[in-house]
């Protein structure tokens, strides 16, 4: 059995221990407020202890049953996650709708759409339609950026 199979239980164990550690640092409230009930820290600690028990069962299951190696994802998957990062940067530094347009355009091309004009139209018309629907019908205001400053004035 490869060590890789322990990665998930190990990751989950570390996560649970960190949460227990953080929970221990939480403030405690006076007896008169809590009474016979629980402190705020008790419930998350209880959950993570329960999690650790389940993780030990999971580790046993992994050991008992031979697992197939999980194949690494293709480029479009990692590329799509990278586009989320680009979306974040564009939204923070330019405008959310510029971010949506760029990501939709690049995602279409990344996923194998060879007709650039189709991706361009999808990336332009979809956000425009959703914007009009939300702005005129649902009366929702979007975060200010280059485009929204021009629109809202």
């Amino acid at each position: 059995m490869s060590n890789k199979f322990y990665t998930i239980p190990l990751f989950l164990t570390i996560f649970s221990i960190i949460i227990i550690g953080i929970s221990m640092q939480l403030d405690t409230s006076p007896e008169m407020i809590v009474g016979d009930s629980m402190q705020a820290r008790s419930f998350p600690i209880f959950l993570m202890v329960l999690n650790l028990i389940l993780i030990s069962v999971l580790t046993f299951q992994y050991k008992k049953n031979k697992q197939d190696l999980i194949k690494l994802e293709k480029f479009p998957t990692w590329g799509s996650m990278g586009l989320f990062l680009i979306f974040y940067l564009l939204t923070v530094y330019t405008d959310m709708f510029i971010g949506i347009f760029v990501v939709m355009l690049l995602m279409g091309l990344l996923w194998g759409e060879k007709r650039i004009w189709v991706s361009f139209l999808t990336a332009t018309l979809t956000p425009l339609f959703i914007f009009l629907l939300f702005d005129f019908v649902l009366k929702i205001r979007f975060p200010r950026g280059i485009l929204m400053n021009m629109y809202y004035g």
Binding site: V103, M104, M107, W111, S119, T122, A123, I130
Partner: peptide, 10 residues
């Protein structure tokens, strides 16, 4: 390649 970018926007 057309459908899922729309899902992202939505």
């Amino acid at each position: 390649a057309i459908l899922w970018p729309i899902v992202f926007g939505l």
